[in-house]
Design a protein around this nucleic acid. Structure first.
Lengths: 347, 347
DNA sequence: GTCAGTGCTGCACACGTGTGCATCACGGAG
DNA sequence: CTCCGTGATGCACACGTGTGCAGCACTGAC
């Protein structure tokens, strides 16, 4: 917050002028030599480059970006990097960014609007060339920044889809429908949905996918079988025990994501029941750990790094002036594992 | 890699001179007004600040850092942000950094020396005020940067501890000793160690902690019960099946970390055995998911965000010229859960 | 009326880099 | 010898901000 205080002065790095002095030329010539400008004599250029190498000269990105009006940095806002889904996405973003010479600023918002404002302000001062936002719940805050400077913003699995032009989004509806259909195919008739009360857009879509599957199969939609957690494992405990306390508990649960599924399974075991013998469970994400769970989790895979890559590539396309597909809808894929099985009895 | 190409020019943000023109003063006065310099008339200062607010003026960090010789950025190098341990640490780092007005550059090295060099070079060009490195295997690469510029570097759970002055490290030896002692107290006599072939320093320490526990308990150390994975779940499959194929399989396994334990448990079940009835398992880290596993994992907790916070606070202390404790050894704590139990029979 | 003091403001430079334009040396053609 | 083209280099400015120092207007004391 303050950043003030007495600072120990580090050794000043070599500047372009230092190299120029050593080579007995002007700093312009050094600049051109390092950029392989054709107008510089090849011999002197090589001599300059050698000197620069020897003295470990690194051009100051700050000075350069001051004149070029381009920082070659992007800002990434996430709710929490501890969220494994987010981490997977950021991996993809960073990979593409680094390959194209961009550095990435990472900032957590903790889903706190005030913090999110501060983050955007700092990105603004840093003059980032673009911004990627994952799973934000406060999309509206970006409008001022977007309109004042023309910084391209790409939203990834955002909760306010219509607000912005560019986005990468998983097909939640279809994924959830696939998960529910899988359970129906196995013979389940009483299927619950365990959602995320904070997942404004995605929760709505996943709920409607689940609902559509029921409708298509001629099953009636039961409000009592819809409960909500917070998208985390611990948050699934209460809603799951709520389902278990029901007079006719479900034989299967479609969970908002893998972490919710993890918490749900934990609570099912705590109640002395087994997965999938007593209750089948599906997740959403296919986190790396999900295949190693006991039982391994049936889920809808989101290609997280790939989605991150797409977001960053969209950003780069925008920065290059290329027209880019505005809204990318990414299909999920059903991964069947051992957490789902036919129900014990016809209920 | 290139970063070149035709760029769409975004709207140029308001500069300090624009505000100066609007306020009919020189840019110096604007600068002073915004910094609440006492020599500026309070009325005009307020007028200037209002104008700046209205026009959404944000000072350019690049220009500022050019003259102040301070970027208020730090670089964080990690092997992979997808690693949940790393993500936990970065959360702590980012929290403290943001609170002190620092922005953080995040870069993955993928444990690739070449990539790590590129990362350090880019941090160098960005003139970061400090660097945090987590779990690096290639510490020696930082020496050139460290010596040329005087950029403070803090290493977190690094594998080359003696190379640098400042570090935050978990007490691996004691943690591993605690885990092994816990198993011995439960009555286990044939205890295996499943390590990480890449964890140069930490693996050595955890192995020696395990070994010391055996010695103290009067148990003989058996080379055949020491196997190595790669610190990831899938990497634990092969060494674990190796242990299971042994003529006298162990009744308990001390694992290098939670992810290895996850893979080991998976393989144990694949062999038709149960945890903890047939084999007890301990981990190291206490990842967020570990409490929700089936069975919940007994492990040594590393306070990941806290360690990240300590690393960043060390950095800030160094930047403020305060002397700081050079090497912080963080104690782990044994968390007993259901993956450990007394052995079935006396072996 | 002069002078010192005070309160405020602008000038001018610095930070490190990129680049349009002028300049310079040189060589060849007329 | 003059003229002009060519290849290489430097000058000078710009980018946006911070700051030492000079300078201004005004006030009050003598």
């Amino acid at each position: 917050m303050d950043g003030a205080g007495i600072f120990k002065t580090p050794a000043k790095p070599a500047s372009i002028k230092d190299i120029a002095r050593l080579a007995n030329v002007s700093h312009s010539t050094v600049s051109r030599a390092l950029h392989h400008h054709p107008l510089v004599n090849e011999e002197t250029a090589e001599r300059i480059r050698k000197l620069a190498r020897q003295h470990g000269y690194r051009p100051s990105a700050a000075a350069r970006s001051l004149v070029t009006q381009r920082s070659y940095t992007i800002g990434v806002v996430v709710t929490s990097i501890s969220d494994p889904f987010v981490a997977g996405v950021v991996t993809g973003i960073e990979e593409v960014a680094s390959r194209h010479g961009f550095s990435v600023f990472l900032a957590n918002s903790n889903a706190d609007p005030e913090q999110e404002i501060r983050v955007v302000q700092s990105f603004d001062e840093r003059r980032v060339d673009g911004i990627v936002v994952t799973s934000s719940r406060v999309g509206a805050l970006y409008v001022p920044v977007l309109s004042r400077r023309q910084v391209p913003i790409v939203l990834l699995n955002n909760q306010h889809p219509s607000e912005f032009a560019y986005s990468v989004v998983i097909d939640s509806t279809q994924g959830s429908l696939d998960a529910a259909n899988h359970l129906i195919d196995l013979g389940h008739r009483r299927i619950a949905y365990l959602g995320d009360e904070f997942g404004r857009q995605s929760d709505t879509e996943r709920l409607s996918g689940y609902r559509e599957a029921l409708t298509q199969a001629g099953l009636r939609f039961n409000r009592e079988l819809v409960v909500h957690g917070d998208g985390k494992a611990e948050g699934a405990i209460r809603p799951m025990s709520q389902l278990l306390a029901h007079a006719h508990p479900p034989t299967a649960v479609v969970c908002y994501n893998d972490m919710s599924a993890l918490g749900a399974m934990h609570q099912i075991r705590a109640a002395g029941l087994r997965v999938p013998e007593d209750i089948s469970i599906t997740g959403f994400d296919d986190l790396h750990i999900s295949q190693f769970l006991n039982p391994p989790l049936t889920t809808i895979r989101q290609p997280m790094p790939e989605m991150g890559r797409m977001a960053m590539e969209t950003l780069i396309a925008l920065l290059s002036g290329n027209v880019s597909q505005q809204n990318i809808l990414v299909p999920g894929s059903l991964i069947v594992r051992a957490s789902t099985a036919p129900p014990k009895e016809i209920s």
